[in-house]
């Protein structure tokens, strides 16, 4: 278990991930980054232009000035091309970090992720390693409509061979990035855009650190109900836990951090303690992490339960643009509280 909140070096999510990338590039010359506009304005160095963007989410700002354009490599808009190139580079001695700007764009490059990155180690008999990190942005709430707002970790969790990580704040953002770069398997890091927009509020140690792969953390200890969250929904669950505390309900908040491997033990241990569970997930509701966890609890924790598992997920629709519709689509702390009242009833 990870404890975090005792010191005061506050960084934003973006600052924390940027620091992890910088430290790992300093530590290991095999690490390089590529993606669309990760520096920006490529090829205009003779006009004094360098690092005009620093990444679509600004996660890579400043890195090209320190490490140069060989290792901080802007790509054309060719996701199949450069994610495939990341696979080839990872198979031959490098540790690429490749940015897929929005996870919804996986449709144009999923063959490279699911048929090559995920399968090569297994189908080649374990004789090749693929230390590839893919980082991608996701999440609704910013009025970017159906093709730029999805939360799609469930579909990748489906594939054996991929590790899937979903940080929930600056501290886990840095730790998971460092862990993934150093790991010899392909890892996809799903980064929520609302978390990236939050002000610096989390303590982040300056020295590099890793987090245990596939281990959840408990962000609130409680005894009445388990709240399971993933990334941004863990942030919501912490808010919901505060609201519930005001009603005298004590919530145990499980922040998954990884969807593959999934920390089944942490979920079941918490449910054994509280006897009630609400699973909060921003991905689509069918064949999702939430349904998977609900099945896990029903199959392996049935005897613990005082009430059926409850899911808080969006409806089975695409993400709408109009802001009132989008607000209705998304999980919120209030919806979590409402769900808790139902399982407590």
């Amino acid at each position: 278990m990870v404890t975090t909140e005792t010191e005061t070096r506050k960084l934003s999510y973006i600052q924390a991930v940027n620091e992890a990338l910088r430290q790992e590039m300093e530590r290991d010359p095999a690490v390089f980054i590529m993606g669309e506009d990760i520096a920006g304005g490529a090829g205009r160095e003779d006009q004094g232009i360098i690092d005009s963007w620093g990444g679509p989410m600004r996660l890579t700002k400043g890195l090209i000035k320190q490490f140069g354009k060989e290792r901080v490599r802007d790509t054309p808009i060719s996701e199949a091309g450069f994610i495939g190139a990341g696979v080839g580079a990872a198979a031959t001695g490098l540790r690429p970090v490749v940015e897929l700007m929005y996870v919804s764009f996986f449709g144009v490059c999923s063959d490279q992720i699911t048929n090559n990155a995920a399968k090569m180690h297994y189908m080649f008999g374990g004789k090749i390693k693929l230390p590839l990190t893919i980082m991608t942005g996701m999440g609704a709430g910013l009025a970017t409509a159906a093709q730029h707002s999805e939360t799609l970790y469930s579909i990748f969790t489906h594939f054996p061979g991929l590790k899937c990580a979903v940080p929930s704040d600056a501290y886990t953002g840095k730790g998971i990035m460092t862990t993934s770069i150093r790991d010899d398997d392909p890892v996809i890091i799903f980064q929520n855009r609302q978390l990236m927009g939050l002000p610096a509020s989390t303590h982040v140690p300056e020295d590099p650190y890793t987090l245990p792969i596939g281990k959840a953390r408990i962000t609130r200890e409680g005894s009445d109900v388990t709240l399971v969250g993933i990334g941004f929904t863990s942030y919501l669950n912490n808010q919901a836990a505060d609201l519930l505390a005001a009603e005298g309900i004590s919530a145990d908040v499980v922040d998954l951090l990884w969807t593959s491997p999934l920390d089944e033990e942490a979920i079941l241990d918490s449910v054994q303690k509280t006897r009630k569970v609400v699973i909060v997930d921003e991905d689509y509701p069918r064949c999702s992490l939430a349904t998977d966890i609900s099945a896990l609890v029903a199959e392996q924790g049935f005897d613990y339960l005082d009430a059926p598992p409850k899911r808080v997920s969006p409806p089975h629709t695409s993400v709408p643009y109009s802001q009132p519709l989008e607000a209705a689509y998304m999980p919120t702390a209030e919806k979590v509280v409402e769900a808790v009242r139902e399982v407590m009833a």
Binding site: G81, G88, A89, T92, G93, Q112, N116, F124, I128
Partner: peptide, 27 residues
């Protein structure tokens, strides 16, 4: 596949290996 002989794999998806080869060149 045999990494020790530089054979990075036959591939069952038509066209799938071509970007991977570009990445090997980049590497």
């Amino acid at each position: 596949a045999d990494i020790n002989k530089g054979m990075l794999g036959a591939n069952g998806v038509v066209g799938s290996n071509i970007p991977v080869a570009a990445g090997v060149g980049l590497s």
